[in-house]
Design a protein around this nucleic acid. Structure first.
Lengths: 147, 147
DNA sequence: GGCCCGATCTTGATTCGTTCAAGATTCTGC
DNA sequence: GCAGAATCTTGAACGAATCAAGATCGGGCC
């Protein structure tokens, strides 16, 4: 896990001011992959004692814009953030418990990025979400995913 | 566009009761691809005169569960529904205006469905969202997507 | 080191999408 | 036509996220 100094450097590299809340939020995202805003808020508060949720939202937006963190939100879930950026990885979401895990693209390159349809969209990013069941839930409910 | 009779048949085939609101919602989803709940509510009201939003939510959930419609919600957007189910198609979302278009999978089969990572998830569906700009926005803002 | 400007944080309220609850209505099978 | 149960209506509530105004702090400059 990167140190506070690394986070400061990352912030400066993105032309962002270095403040206690920002470092704390950045550290929280690094320490809690796929955490929702509430968890991040909690983690940041453990660091600082007090942070307003508004600050966290603002910081997360700033970091997202700067490309330091990535925002994901599978349906049925609130916004979640992760620190892995720059690589082309995707996510598996468990239908049962909502757990999220990273998946490196199986084929080794951006899948289907060549959206060869007739819609003429300028595609610059492909986001893939896999749906299934995590090992724990698959074990707990062997066959029927429904209850 | 399918007729009300077709919708009734589809409902019965899914062991769902045939009611005015259900047919209207189903027709609305067919007629307005990628519409949000509010649009669907409006479309249903044009058909029926009055429907409660609660009924629409309930119908949409029932239809989603039955597999008659599909729910998508790209980040930054509210829940949207579409009637194309069963085929393995994906979506392009415009970063500027939020427009959504269908994309048939370029490679012809479920992309990366073989998530070959070590997480042992049982993957059964891959959902792909492409991000980019629609033709209109690409023309309006040739280079900078940001303002 | 001290000052100024502006970005950033705090507090508080507000909006919006969605869900919950209770009762009335409607549909299906008989 | 009747009974039972699913479905719809009304109205309220909840939570995530956003907006607004003012105080505070960081960074650059003297």
């Amino acid at each position: 896990m990167a140190s506070a100094t690394d986070f400061e450097r990352a912030l400066r590299a993105s032309a962002l001011r270095v403040t206690r809340p920002r470092v704390a939020v950045l550290a929280a995202v690094h320490g809690h992959p796929h955490a929702d805003t509430d968890s991040i808020l909690g983690a940041a508060r453990e660091d600082l004692g007090t942070v307003s949720h508004q600050a966290v939202y603002d910081v997360l937006r700033a970091l997202t814009t700067a490309g330091l963190v990535r925002c994901i939100q599978p349906k049925g879930s609130v916004a979640r953030y992760e620190a892995r950026v720059g690589d082309n990885h995707h996510h598996v979401v468990c239908r049962s418990c909502g757990a999220i895990a990273d998946v490196d693209c199986a084929v080794g390159y951006a899948p289907c990025l060549t959206a060869s349809d007739g819609s003429e969209f300028e595609v610059d990013e492909a986001e893939v979400v896999f749906w299934g069941r995590c090992p724990a839930c698959a074990t707990a409910v062997p066959q029927a995913a429904e209850a």
